[in-house]
Amino acid sequence: MSRSAVNRTILLVVGIVLIGGGLLLLAGGFDLYDRLDTAVPDGWPLTSPDQPVLSEASRARWSGQDWWWPVAIAVPALVVIGGLAWLWVQLHRVGPGTVTVPVPGGDGVALRMRNSALQDAVESEIVELPGVDKVTVRATGGSHRLSLRAVVRLLPGTHPGEALQSLDAGPLENARTSLGLAELPTEIRLRATARRPGAGPKPPRVV
């Protein structure tokens, strides 16, 4: 799973929890259950403005157990540590999905290029190779840990080994040279196209 997908998932879960908790507090604080004459289940939290969020019985229910205080301390600590770790990862990204491209003869001058531009450039070269029908490239990481993931669809009859050699000697070598990288880790998934492009629709199956 990519970093952006993980971030969206975390934000979605946190948002749902906060919105749900806020709605419960508002419903009880404005006494909506009584105004709307709505029956709530037993033990439902905060059903009226005068009711505390946690009753005295709920607060003291587990306090006498040996495991209660270690858990009460460990759980918030883990939440705080996890939040700080997530924030540290976000702050240590190299730009908003960008890579650094050195300028030839620029005496140390470099340009910042978005990952999407790099993806488009590599895709445009790969799709021009013989036997390639379609390609999707994703760039992950920053300039110091850049890697590529490519899904390449090959036309029927294309030899996978020859396609990989063409990929490495052509588009990938060009990318390494342009970025000034000795290595560019790349994960390539080869898939076969079911039929040649331009072919008509499959005939209906007769049962």
Results as ranks from 00 to 15, higher is better:
residue 201 P to V: 05
residue 167 L to F: 12
residue 186 T to E: 08
residue 188 I to S: 11
residue 132 V to E: 04
residue 76 P to K: 08
residue 96 P to K: 04
residue 132 V to I: 15
residue 16 I to S: 09
residue 58 S to V: 15
residue 97 G to S: 05
residue 30 F to L: 15
residue 149 R to D: 09
residue 160 P to E: 04
residue 16 I to A: 14
residue 7 N to W: 08
residue 77 A to W: 07
residue 156 P to K: 04
residue 142 G to A: 05
residue 110 A to S: 15
residue 148 L to T: 03
residue 28 G to T: 02
residue 136 T to K: 13
residue 14 V to K: 01
residue 31 D to A: 07
residue 194 A to F: 02
residue 39 A to Q: 10
residue 114 R to A: 15
residue 65 Q to R: 11
residue 86 W to S: 10
residue 171 P to S: 11
residue 162 E to T: 13
residue 144 H to I: 05
residue 110 A to N: 12
residue 27 A to N: 03
residue 103 V to S: 07
residue 157 G to F: 06
residue 64 G to H: 03
residue 86 W to H: 14
residue 105 G to L: 07
residue 194 A to K: 06
residue 138 R to W: 01
residue 3 R to V: 02
residue 165 Q to D: 15
residue 128 E to L: 14
residue 159 H to T: 12
residue 144 H to W: 02
residue 49 P to Q: 01
residue 201 P to M: 05
residue 180 G to R: 10
residue 182 A to M: 08
residue 32 L to F: 09
residue 97 G to R: 02
residue 46 L to A: 05
residue 135 V to I: 10
residue 85 A to N: 00
residue 180 G to L: 09
residue 75 V to S: 04
residue 123 E to P: 00
residue 150 A to Q: 13
residue 76 P to C: 08
residue 100 T to A: 14
residue 167 L to H: 08
residue 54 L to Y: 14
residue 66 D to S: 11
residue 134 K to V: 06
